[in-house]
């Protein structure tokens, strides 16, 4: 039993990483209606920027805020420069664009900061949290930030005009234009926000997985999986999905014989797919009623 509790706790701790990334995934999905495969790389690049700022002597929180702002602007710039020209191209062509962006960012980061692993500081410290060896104060802080972020996003989408406009632009673009929403800028804004949230995720994850250009590869996949599991339309679902995936993965690794580290990911994905087969909109996704 103690092993079980410990594994669940450890799962929640890793789950916080996935939850954070899943929030960014849901954010961009709300804005552009598909998944951005380069999102993890964007987050990684932001994290490197914050690291660089700290190397230049800027204190943690100042670097944090500065990175947030830079990432927001950077996300908008990427949309305006690279993806706006593809607005009328087929979806699959856009997906190819994400892959291209992935390659560009990954390779540039490798050239600028090289591929050696770097330590990354945590603002929360790394002592055991409430005496538990399995959750450190950093991980607890990460869970806290994720929940705060979630509340902020919920408020933004539910109670602000611009949040409402963004949702409208994403769900029925033509109607959104007909009520006077500039859908093109809503998409850019979505990119900016997703990039900023991604940068938070990156900066929180880096102390755990260490900073290097490939740090986000695995994390993004889990983030996707978490978002899909929770329901791509629900930020709340994404966070719950993140924790669930973390716990899933840990328990599968512990209790299913023959599942080493290598098979953890496929098993977690297989479980998620089984859930989707039963609940195609995800656990908390709003079921879309379509009259045909």
């Amino acid at each position: 039993m103690e092993l079980f509790t410990n594994q669940v706790l450890a799962g929640i701790a890793t789950g916080a990483i996935y939850a954070c990334m899943a929030l960014a995934v849901v954010m961009i999905y709300q804005a552009i209606d598909h998944l951005n495969f380069a999102q993890g790389e964007m987050a990684m690049f932001s994290t490197f920027i914050s690291w660089q700022l700290m190397q230049w002597g800027i204190p943690y929180w100042a670097a944090f805020v500065l990175t947030l702002a830079l990432s927001f602007v950077g996300g908008i710039a990427i949309e305006r420069i690279l993806f706006k020209p593809l607005a009328k191209a087929p979806i699959l062509t856009n997906v190819a664009g994400f892959i291209a962006l992935f390659a560009i960012i990954n390779s540039s980061a490798g050239l600028i900061w090289d591929f050696t692993i770097k330590q990354y500081p945590t603002p929360f410290g790394s002592a055991p949290f409430l005496g538990s060896q399995l959750i450190s104060t950093h991980q607890a802080g990460m869970i806290g930030v994720t929940v705060l972020l979630l509340l902020g996003l919920y408020f933004f989408f539910q109670y602000t005009k611009i949040g409402l406009a963004m949702r409208a632009a994403a769900s029925v673009p033509e109607s959104a234009r007909l009520v006077g929403i500039n859908t093109s800028w809503m998409i850019a804004l979505g990119w900016g926000m997703a990039s900023a949230i991604g940068s938070i995720a990156g900066m929180l994850i880096a102390p755990v997985v260490f900073l290097e250009p490939n740090m986000m590869g695995g994390v993004l996949i889990y983030g996707f999986a978490a978002a899909v599991l929770g329901g791509l339309t629900s930020p709340f679902g994404a966070v719950v999905g993140g924790f669930l995936v973390g716990v899933f993965e840990n328990l599968a690794g512990t209790y299913i014989p023959g599942v080493g580290n290598e098979l953890k990911l496929p098993i977690a994905l297989a479980l998620i797919i089984s859930v989707l087969v039963v609940k195609p909109a995800g656990l908390f996704g709003r079921h879309i009623v379509k009259r045909v």
Binding site: R167, A168, V172, E174, S175, A176, L178, V289, R291
Partner: peptide
């Protein structure tokens, strides 16, 4: 008011 009504069905 477009043809097909253009309802924001998910809202």
């Amino acid at each position: 008011v477009p043809q097909g009504r253009g309802t924001f069905t998910t809202m």
